[in-house]
């Protein structure tokens, strides 16, 4: 996993919920189809214009709502490299880490404009706005959970555990 990320900012407000991230009407289809409608209710351009490596910036309670993992998976599918928010809904937070998507709390997050160039250091939690030189300190991801992220998500993490226990028996 890359520990130093750079990309353009996509900026959202508070309470970005799982129904706008993964609209129910597209839940039956493939993740690619669903991702094409990600956030369309509030920003119809997002899914078509977000580029791999871009970062998401948001306010409080990002990912509030349902437990549907597709909310995080759609963002992974679109290539979002990390999300920095003032706070996250807990199931979304866990889902994102489990899918290998870095999510960082930044309670003191200031104003970032859409399209600003950002640099995020996952080890220190430092978010650097290259467009205006401002810096914000995010809470680093807890050590207990960094292992999951390092492995690339819970699946590869469990894979290690199961292959280890498999080789013992």
């Amino acid at each position: 996993m890359k520990r130093n990320l750079t990309g353009s900012a996509w900026v959202f407000g508070d309470n970005i919920d799982t129904d706008v991230l993964a609209p129910g009407a597209y839940m039956k289809g493939s993740i690619a189809e669903l991702a094409a409608h990600c956030l369309e209710a509030i920003d119809p351009n997002f899914a078509s214009q977000v580029k791999p490596g871009d970062l998401m910036i948001a306010g409080d309670a990002f990912g509030i709502g349902s437990s549907r993992e597709q909310a995080a998976q759609a963002l992974v599918e679109l290539g979002v490299s990390a999300i920095v928010a003032k706070s996250f809904a807990r199931i979304f937070y866990r889902n994102a880490l489990n899918l290998g998507l870095p999510v960082l709390f930044c309670p003191e997050l200031g104003v970032i404009k859409p399209g600003d160039q950002l640099q995020l250091d996952l080890t220190s939690g430092l978010l650097h706005n290259l467009s205006n030189g401002e810096q914000f300190q995010c809470e680093p991801i807890p050590e207990e959970l960094m292992g999951i992220l390092e492995a690339g998500g819970l699946m590869p993490f469990l894979q290690q555990r199961f292959s280890k226990s498999g080789s013992k028996t």
């Binding site: 993992e69 199931i91 889902n95 899918l99 819970l154 469990l158």
Partner: peptide, 9 residues
């Protein structure tokens, strides 16, 4: 509540 990957775990 948990998501599907976590459920797998």
């Amino acid at each position: 509540g948990i998501g599907a990957t976590e459920m797998t775990g």
